[in-house]
Amino acid sequence: MAAGGDHGSPDSYRSPLASRYASPEMCFVFSDRYKFRTWRQLWLWLAEAEQTLGLPITDEQIQEMKSNLENIDFKMAAEEEKRLRHDVMAHVHTFGHCCPKAAGIIHLGATSCYVGDNTDLIILRNALDLLLPKLARVISRLADFAKERASLPTLGFTHFQPAQLTTVGKRCCLWIQDLCMDLQNLKRVRDDLRFRGVKGTTGTQASFLQLFEGDDHKVEQLDKMVTEKAGFKRAFIITGQTYTRKVDIEVLSVLASLGASVHKICTDIRLLANLKEMEEPFEKQQIGSSAMPYKRNPMRSERCCSLARHLMTLVMDPLQTASVQWFERTLDDSANRRICLAEAFLTADTILNTLQNISEGLVVYPKVIERRIRQELPFMATENIIMAMVKAGGSRQDCHEKIRVLSQQAASVVKQEGGDNDLIERIQVDAYFSPIHSQLDHLLDPSSFTGRASQQVQRFLEEEVYPLLKPYESVMKVKAELCL
C-alpha cells in the first residue's frame, strides 16, 4: 500500500493539533497551500530580480507567473513527485505547466533550498508574528487579574506546605514575570531571523556568478533584492546548502521555554482548584465526569500541561538535527523538520489560546482563602504575639514557653481530632496574655502579614508589564474561544 493518505478522510490519521486544537490561522501558515504558494512567490521574486539585473526574462513571463501564483494543481504535483521522487522539481514542473512561456526560467540558477529553506524562514517569521500578540493578550488578562487582587491576602506555599502570606495578585505576578520573559525572547528570536537568500547549491553562489558572467556586484544585488522582497532586513552571508540548523534550535528553545512557563502556571491553577481557592472557567453544560456528576475538573489547565510537556520535548529534535548536518548538509534534517517545526508552533498556539481562555474567566473564592488563612495564621502570628507581650512588660522566655504549650495543644486538636485551630481562643482565655487581649485582632490582621506584596504588584505592572504590552494595544480586544 502506498504511503500517505487522504487526510480529510475519517479513515486516515490526522494530527489532533490540526484537527482538534490549533487555530485556523496557525494551521494555514503550515498548510501545503501556504507552503507551495510561497515557493511560487519566491520563484517570481527571483525572476523579477534577475530581470532587473539584466537576464533575458520578459515582462510577459513575469506576468504569467504572477497570474498563476494561486493556480496550484495539487493532484498534478503529487503525481509528479511520485514520478520524480523530488518535491521541488515536482512543483517546478507543475508551475511550468500553467506558465508555459515562463517554464524555462522558473528556478533559474537556484537549488531546492532556495524555495525550501527560504519558505521555512518566512513561515517561522509569520508563525512567530501570530504567537506574539496571543502571548501579549494572556499577559494582559493576567495583569488585569493581578491588579484587581493585588491586596487580597492568601496563604503562600513553599514545598506545598503553608508559608508566609502573600497576595493573590502577587502570586499571579510570578506567572506574568515568566511570560514577559517569554514574550521578550519570542520577539528577540523573531527579529534575529535572517533570510537564507540566493546562495546556490553549497552556499557559494557559483551558479549565479556564472549567470551574471562573473559580476560579483550583481550577485550581491540579486541576494539583497530577493531578501528585501521577502520582507527581511538581512540575509546570511555564510550558508551551506541550507541555512544553519542552529536557527531551528533557537526558535524551538524559546517555544519550549514558553511551554515550561505555561505548565507551571496551569499546575498552580490545578492545585488551587483542589484547594477550592480558584477555578478555571466551567461552562453551564460542561460535564466533569461521566460517573461523578459533582466533579469540576480543571480540564483546560490539564490540557495545557499535557501539550506543554510535548512542546518542551520537541527542542531535542533540532538539537540532534543540527549535530548531524555533515559538511554542507545531509538530508537527516528533512523529514524531522517537516514534523517538529509545525508541531512546535501548533502546540504553542494551542496552549496560548487555551491559557487566554482560562485567564479571561478565572474565578476566585475569597471566603475559602480566608478560612485557610484562619487555619494557619495563628501559628504564624506567634512571633508577633511574643513581641507584643514583651512590649507590655512580659518575659520573652516565659511567653515563648506559654505559646509553645498552647500551640501544641491547638495542633493536637487540628491533627488528632480534625478540629479547627483554636490557638487564639486559648490565648484569649489565658490570664497571662490579658495585657494584649485587646491587640489580638490587630495582630491577626492578614494584611499585616503580606509585606509589600501589593506595592510590588503595582510597581511591576507599571514599570515592566504595561510598557512591554504597549506595541500590542491594537490587538488586545480579541477574545479566545474554545470549541473543545
Rank of each mutant, 00 (worst) to 15 (best):
A2V: 06
D6C: 07
G8P: 15
G8W: 15
P10C: 15
S12A: 13
P16C: 13
E25W: 05
C27G: 12
V29L: 11
D32C: 12
R33Y: 10
T38V: 14
W39S: 09
Q41G: 06
L44V: 13
A47Q: 04
Q51E: 06
P56W: 07
Q63W: 11
M65W: 01
K66D: 09
N68Y: 08
E79D: 14
R83L: 12
V88C: 05
V92T: 13
V92C: 13
F95I: 07
A103M: 13
G104W: 09
I105D: 07
I105M: 10
G109Q: 00
G109N: 04
G116S: 14
D117F: 02
N118F: 00
T119R: 02
T119K: 02
R125M: 13
A127D: 00
A127R: 00
L128K: 07
P133I: 14
A146Q: 01
E148F: 12
A150W: 06
S151K: 14
F160W: 05
Q164N: 09
L165R: 03
T166V: 09
W175D: 03
I176M: 15
L179Y: 02
M181R: 07
L183I: 13
K187L: 08
V189T: 12
K199Y: 02
G203P: 02
T204E: 02
Q210P: 10
F212L: 12
M225S: 11
M225G: 06
K229E: 05
G231R: 10
G231I: 02
F232M: 11
F236T: 07
F236Y: 12
G240D: 02
Q241S: 02
T242H: 05
Y243K: 05
Y243D: 00
Y243L: 09
R245P: 01
K246T: 04
D248N: 04
I249N: 06
L252Q: 07
S253R: 05
V254Q: 09
L255R: 02
V262S: 15
H263T: 14
D268W: 03
K276R: 08
E277K: 01
E277Y: 05
M278E: 02
E279V: 06
P281G: 09
K284S: 11
K284L: 13
I287E: 02
S289T: 02
A291L: 03
M292L: 04
K295G: 00
R296H: 05
M299I: 13
R300M: 12
S301H: 06
A308Q: 04
D317L: 06
L319D: 03
Q320L: 11
T321L: 11
A322M: 14
A322E: 12
F327P: 02
S334I: 02
N336H: 03
I339K: 08
C340V: 15
E343F: 00
A348L: 09
T354F: 05
Q356E: 11
N357A: 09
S359H: 13
S359P: 12
G361V: 06
L362H: 06
V364W: 07
P366Q: 09
I369A: 15
I369K: 02
R372G: 05
I373R: 04
E383N: 04
I385G: 03
I386W: 03
M387R: 03
A388V: 04
K391V: 08
C399H: 09
H400I: 05
E401G: 12
S407F: 04
A411Y: 05
S412T: 14
D420E: 07
D422V: 04
D422W: 11
H437F: 06
Q439V: 12
H442Y: 12
F449M: 04
G451D: 03
Q456I: 08
Q456W: 01
Q456L: 14
Q458M: 12
Q458Y: 12
E462W: 13
E463S: 10
P467D: 09
L468Y: 00
L469P: 02
L469F: 08
K470F: 13
Y472I: 14
E481T: 15
C483V: 15
